[in-house]
Amino acid sequence: MSLLKTVGLGMTYSGAPQPALTSVNFEANEGEFIAVVGPSGAGKSTFLRCLNQLITPTEGQLFFEGEETTHLKGEPLRHLRTRIGFIFQDYNLQGRLSVLQNVLTGLLGQRPALQTTLGIWSKKDVEKAHWLLRDLGLSDQSQKRADALSGGQQQRVSIARALIQSPRLILADEPVASLDPPTAHAVLKDLKRVAKEEGITVLINLHHIDLALEYADRILGLRDGVKVWDQPTSETSESSFTEIYGRNLKADDLAKE
């Protein structure tokens, strides 16, 4: 079943001479793990940020669960965002708060503001947070300050923060770009595992093609803000990547690891 759809999605930043994204038609089904690849500046981040409207697209339409969400503002937009997790390259945790509290912040959009502002969380929510941390191998870190953790651990905390939202969709913008290769693989494996267990759709920006090939069910290739192709991973070939990178980057990319 279709979860997310874009029709003619376009984005031109104010003052920019050219659009960062042009007429992207795209559809994601429930439970798919989809990688978005393309060289730096191809529009991957712009695409992802348009989907939860961290950036307001200037063209086209957005649909979520079959309903148009293009022009949502205020409360309805906030409500939409509670069902979409977002994972950032630099984790964007609140370093001064504990790991457990960081996970709980994932619920800020779904619990009464008065209660959360006073720092009151239900026993059930706290248990869920602990459960997620245990599932991601972080149970003995829960009381530490988030900024005391390693990069890989911090990114797992941010995954737990997204999961506690009980999202239908997770958007991940270069989630492993700041991690060393073994850690990157471990974090991606975890992300894919939990997403499959919960039936969550994942859209993930990756500039390492080998990572995309290893983990994604489907790959979307972008270049200069345009969708060049959109194929199941098994159907991609070396020429697909040459097409978007303009050179045989796949071999180089694999050699780096």
Partner: peptide, 16 residues
């Protein structure tokens, strides 16, 4: 960063 994360997950103003 943290403020952006709060916005992305739908936190209301006061919680942000």
């Amino acid at each position: 960063g943290p403020l952006e994360a709060m916005t992305a997950l739908g936190a209301p103003w006061i919680a942000r």
